[in-house]
């Protein structure tokens, strides 16, 4: 680069002032820049037909169930009489279970807001995009960090006695810590776990907790939100 460049790079949007311009294609501006995309087929009829079939299958299944399974309808709403237990729709029962353990401002406001914010920012953090295995590099620093986070989290949960949150947390935390000590050639599951990145573990933990709370809230909670066994 001894020769002086003939052109200067600069920014400008005035076509009258700078009639000759260069377009710089950066990595992330357009997906069309990508090289290999594999074989392509026409959307019509390949996609449209498949979607039409999917729609028909769905409709048939829904109609078949709706013919025999009646939507519930209870007594007329009575503001003076709370049914026992009073349950939200099933997809909010996880939240209701959280509210059983945490103060409302934490369980009802803080945690849901954090979940939504966390979901939104997922694609804007490089750790989620690179997808490098958690224990592939800097193990010595990462391991105590992960252990510390898990212990702190469990300490908070134990302080609130949130047992139905603790159980799935312990399971997933056990998995993430165990995967550090796995070495190649211990079977396919071990290889799979060793290759998991951090976001995979976090999402798995989230799903495990959400699923446990929803199932517990739906089937294992009776009058006064006390623990019951659904088969009794």
């Amino acid at each position: 680069m001894s020769e002086k460049a003939k052109y200067e790079a600069g920014f400008g949007s005035d076509a009258l002032k700078d009639p000759q311009r260069i377009v710089f294609i950066t990595k992330k501006t357009s997906a069309k820049v990508k090289g290999d995309v594999g074989r392509q087929v026409m959307s019509f009829p390949h996609v449209i037909l498949r979607e039409a079939i999917a729609f028909q299958v769905l409709t048939i299944v829904l109609v078949a169930i709706a013919l025999f399974w009646d939507a519930p309808l209870e007594q007329l709403a009575n503001p003076l009489l709370t049914p026992n237990p009073a349950k939200a729709p099933w997809y909010f029962l996880g939240l209701q279970e959280l509210l059983h353990y945490f103060p409302p401002v934490v369980g009802g406001v803080l945690i849901p807001t954090l979940v939504v914010v966390a979901l939104i920012v997922i694609p804007y953090f490089n750790v989620n995009i690179e997808g490098a295995p958690l224990w592939a590099a800097r193990r010595g620093r990462r391991f105590p960090l992960v252990v510390g986070t898990v212990v702190a989290l469990l300490a908070i949960l134990v302080a609130y006695q949130a047992w139905t949150v603790i159980a799935p947390t312990v399971l997933v935390a056990g998995g993430v810590l165990l995967s550090n000590f796995l070495s190649p050639g211990q079977g396919r599951l071990a290889d799979f776990l060793r290759a998991r990145p951090l976001p995979w573990w976090v999402m798995t933990w989230f799903i495990a907790v959400a699923l446990t709370l929803t199932i517990v809230g739906t089937f294992f909670r009776g009058p006064g939100w006390s623990w019951i066994w659904p088969w009794r």
Partner: peptide
């Protein structure tokens, strides 16, 4: 507007 509806929305 049944009991199920009213108390779920109350909570």
């Amino acid at each position: 507007w049944d009991q199920l509806a009213f108390w779920a929305i109350t909570v």
